[in-house]
Nucleic acid binder design. Structure first.
Length: 510
RNA sequence: GGCAGGGUAGCUCAGCUGGUUAGAGCACGGCACUCAUAAUGCCGGGGUCGCGGGUUCGAGUCCCGCCCCUGCUACCA
């Protein structure tokens, strides 16, 4: 079996899960389920980034220890992922001892393999006591922090460990050229490439003032033990999750895919690969930077007030429909918009009237005209069209264009509904001489429906399984393999019509 | 400011190296059908292709200028 290790960004434990988090996890989950149904040996990692100043501050504000706070937040996130049927195999938290050990081991390994890559350097700048952070020039007005104008900024000098990122510009450049798929979509790739071409500055690897984090394994020359700065703490989670530095990892590094948001592309495609190269470790095969979900036309942001109650959204149409809507409506390579109006349109046209109704009418006719048993027939012209849709789906999936894969499925659904009208099985049923034509029509429809159910399984695992049972398919739907989908033959299956999968008035409350 | 990508029907978008009446889905209107979740199918209305010049027999598609939007331009994550 081909190993397929994929990850999402780990979420910062300083707030509740929101639409943006959900979009990324759902997208990655679709990819994970797709690969399982390709027969790959999938390991799907998600998790939380639990260190940093903001976490410590929020905990202090609430009178909690940082650990108590992140325990609570992590539980909230995990409950949300269970609710959305995210099929992660592992949930890593950066406060886990194994992760902290792994971070220190990685840093030590860089000291060992690339001895000159870490060095001490003094950093000086405007330090805002209110923010507890250094401020950039553009955040300083009249010598004061724009967020805390009542306080005077201090000019502070701090001695930190630095990582020689500048050294890796040429390495990264040639890696990007040798691996065109390393970072996608290409718009992100071009941006990062131009950034690398401008030359890279070194980055700090430790902080003196940061208390909540992983101790940097080597003290500075004056004996101070500092705290590992964010990229050397958070990014290695993908590696430490495999058991690093232990010899028997649960899942083999490198990852085949990092799914991330476009805002953290630079960290993942520049700093992280440089760190790995410095440590003499292989790079991830691919990085996919998805876009953002806007809400009602407005910019959705973690900090701004524009948000959507995830729990309510899921209640309204159910987890599967919510997953479907996001994947159908919002392109996975760029930004998209979420609106309830659009959700209702999609639900009604695609799910209730399109797919749901095709399932309903197909099963009803097979029950009515053939006692529920799918007739056995020879392949006809419809199969070639189905094969084209299956191919388009796979190509879109392999390119992580999840919205295009759904487009292919719904082309097939539409072709099914057109086929029913053109064949008019209710007319064929009236004339016993046309029994063979009716058999062929019903079998063709049954097969289309079965294929669609399999194709939709990564997106709507529960609905797909539920329909698979109505179709009388063997085993569970996720046991089906895409490679053999074209030869799927539902002849002889016994179909049983159940309640509408996607009721037109929306699902019953709850 | 620099670099990159966009501005095409109410909405989301497709239109490859320039070529007959500019396309799709959804939404909207009419007709047909009845297996189905009053679902489906067919037909149709609807666009100064951001603005202004230019090249060409011919430009949404090329060139120049302008307007607007988005992303990147490195230490919150």
């Amino acid at each position: 079996m081909t190993a397929y290790y994929l990850t999402t960004a780990i979420d910062y434990a300083n707030g509740d899960p929101h639409l943006g988090h959900a979009f990324e996890k759902i997208g990655a989950d679709v990819i994970a389920r797709y690969h399982r149904m390709r027969g790959d040996d999938v390991w799907f990692l998600i998790g939380m980034d639990e260190h940093g100043q903001k976490v410590a501050q929020t905990a202090a504000d609430r009178g909690l220890t940082p650990q108590a706070l992140v325990d609570e937040v992590a539980a909230t996130f995990q409950a949300m992922w269970r609710r959305l049927d995210i099929s992660n195999d592992q949930f890593i938290r950066t406060t886990e001892p194994a992760h902290k050990n792994g971070v220190q081991a990685l840093i030590e390994r860089i000291f060992e393999k690339s001895p000159s890559d870490f060095y001490e350097k003094s950093y000086e700048g405007h330090y805002c006591v209110g923010c507890e952070a250094f401020k950039q020039e553009n955040e300083v007005v009249d010598g004061r922090c724009v967020l805390h104008p009542t306080r005077v900024l201090e000019w502070v000098e701090e001695r930190n460990w630095f990582f020689r990122l500048s050294k890796y510009a040429d390495f990264l450049k040639s890696h990007f050229e040798a691996h065109p798929d390393f970072l996608q979509p290409s718009s992100r790739r071009n941006e990062i490439l131009s950034l690398i071409n401008q030359g890279l500055d070194d980055v700090s690897a430790s902080r003196a003032r940061l208390a909540w984090g992983v101790p940097f394994p080597r003290p500075t020359s004056d004996g101070e033990v500092q705290t590992t700065y964010v990229w050397f703490d958070a990014l290695p989670n993908y590696l430490t999750a495999t058991g690093f530095p232990n010899a028997e990892p649960r899942q083999q590094w490198p990852a085949q895919l990092h799914v991330i948001g476009k805002d953290i592309t630079r960290f993942h495609s520049v700093i992280w690969p440089a760190m790995l190269e410095a440590a003499g470790l292989p790079l991830p095969e691919r990085i996919w930077a998805h876009g953002f979900v806007n809400l009602g036309g407005e910019r959705f942001s973690k900090s701004a007030g524009v948000k959507l109650e995830l729990g309510e959204a899921i209640d309204r149409f159910g987890a599967d429909s919510f997953r479907f809507f996001l994947m159908r409506e919002i392109p996975f390579d760029t930004d998209g918009n979420f609106s309830w109006e659009r959700f209702e349109e999609r639900y009604t046209s695609d799910l209730a009237n399109g797919f749901g109704n095709l399932a309903s009418r197909t099963i009803a006719m097979i029950e009515k005209y053939r006692g529920g048993v799918v007739p056995t027939v020879v392949r006809n012209d419809a199969y070639a069209a189905d094969a084209r849709d299956i191919t388009a789906y796979a190509e879109a999936m392999d390119g992580h264009m999840l919205h295009l894969a759904l487009e292919a499925v719904f082309r097939n659904v539409d072709s099914g509904n057109e086929y029913v009208t053109s064949q008019a099985p209710w007319k064929l049923a009236k004339d016993p001489a046309l029994a063979t034509a009716l058999d062929e029509t019903l079998a063709t429809l049954a097969r289309k429906l079965a294929i669609q159910t399999v194709l939709l399984a990564p997106y709507m695992p529960r609905k797909a399984q539920s329909l698979w049972e109505q179709l009388g398919g063997p085993g569970i739907v996720s046991d089906q393999r895409f490679a053999s989908l074209d030869s799927l033959d539902p002849s002889g299956w016994t179909m049983t019509k159940g309640a509408p999968l996607f009721p037109r008035d929306g699902p019953p409350a709850a």
